[in-house]
C-alpha cells in the first residue's frame, strides 16, 4: 500500500490512527480506529481534521467527529497537548512522517477528561495564582521605563517566559498525580522567572512560602522526565535546583527570625 511521493521516497496512501475516546466526563473510555488519506507534511491535527470531514471508523462505521483542543497550530499556545504513541507532546508539531503507525492518541491521564482528547487543565492556572506569578505593579499610569537589564538575564528569563502551560511536564512527572499535591515543574519554573525579575522579586518570600509548603519543591523526586518532554526546552531542572536553594535560604532566614 505504498506509492511514490514528490521526494522520490515511497509514502503510505493512508494514515492509521487509534484514538482513545470518551463521551463525557466520568464515562468509560473506548477505542476507535481511523484511516485517513495521507498528505505530505501532515501532522496529527491535520489528520484529525480529515476525520471530521468524514467521521467514519476504519471498519466503515459512522461515528461522531473526534474532539480535541487546539489553537495556534504552531506550538505557542499550549492547547493541543495529548499523549501520542505514549509520549506527552503537542499534536500540532507531531509530523505524521516521523511517527510509527498506527498513531495512538490518548488524552492526558493526569487531568480530568472532558471529552475524547480534551482535558481540564484548570489546576495549572490555579497554581500560577498560588505562586503569585506576576510583577506587582503600582498601576498602569506613566512611571517611565522599567529597570535596565543585562542581555544575559533577559535571555535566561525569556526561556522560562516561553512556558505555555501545556502540561506535558506534569503528565510525564511521576510525582504529579491525584495521590499527591505536588505543584509541578511548570509552576516552579514560573516562580523562578519572577524571583529573577528586579520588581517581581518583591514577592519572592510569598512564592517561597508556597514552594516550602506541602506540594512544594521538595516533592520533586528529580526524575527529570519534565525536561525531557518540555516542548519549549525550558531548563526546568535548573529552576528546580535554584528554587530548592532559595527555599533552603528562606527557611533558615525564617528560623532565625523566630
Amino acid at each position: 500500500m505504498t506509492s511514490p511521493n514528490g521526494n522520490g521516497h515511497s509514502a503510505p496512501e493512508h494514515v492509521l490512527l487509534r484514538i482513545k475516546r470518551q463521551k463525557a466526563p466520568g464515562e468509560p473510555p473506548y477505542w476507535e480506529s481511523f484511516r485517513v488519506p495521507y498528505e505530505p507534511g501532515m501532522n496529527v491535527i491535520s489528520a484529525l481534521m480529515k476525520i471530521r470531514l468524514n467521521p467514519v471508523t476504519a471498519e466503515g462505521r459512522a461515528t461522531t467527529p473526534v474532539t480535541w483542543d487546539s489553537g495556534c497550530l504552531e506550538e505557542v499556545c499550549g492547547a493541543c497537548s495529548m499523549r501520542i504513541n505514549g509520549i506527552p507532546r503537542q499534536s500540532c508539531t507531531a509530523l505524521v512522517d516521523k511517527l510509527e503507525q498506527p498513531i495512538v492518541l490518548e488524552p492526558f491521564s493526569k487531568f480530568p477528561v472532558l471529552r475524547d482528547l480534551m482535558v481540564d487543565r484548570t489546576p495549572m492556572f490555579d497554581a500560577l495564582k498560588r505562586i503569585k506569578a506576576w510583577v506587582p505593579l503600582d498601576g498602569t499610569y506613566a512611571l517611565g521605563p522599567g529597570d535596565k537589564m543585562a542581555p544575559e538575564l533577559q535571555q535566561i528569563r525569556y526561556k522560562y517566559s516561553e512556558c505555555m502551560t501545556c502540561g506535558c511536564c506534569l503528565e510525564a512527572c511521576p510525582q504529579y498525580n491525584n495521590r499527591s499535591s505536588f505543584i509541578g515543574a511548570s509552576a516552579i519554573g514560573q516562580a523562578y522567572l519572577f524571583n529573577e525579575h528586579p520588581t517581581g522579586r518583591n514577592l519572592k518570600g510569598d512564592r517561597l512560602d508556597v514552594m516550602m509548603g506541602p506540594g512544594g519543591v521538595v516533592d520533586c523526586g528529580n526524575a527529570q522526565n519534565c525536561v525531557r518532554v518540555c516542548p519549549k526546552h525550558i531548563p526546568l531542572t535548573d529552576a528546580i535546583a535554584a528554587i530548592g536553594g532559595q527555599v533552603t535560604v528562606h527557611a533558615i532566614k525564617k528560623m532565625l527570625r523566630f
Partner: peptide
C-alpha cells in the same frame, strides 16, 4: 512600551 517593560516583558536588550 514602558509599561510593558515594567510588567516584566523580557524584551531583547542592547
Amino acid at each position: 512600551i514602558d509599561l510593558l517593560d515594567r510588567m516584566g516583558v523580557p524584551f531583547n536588550r542592547t
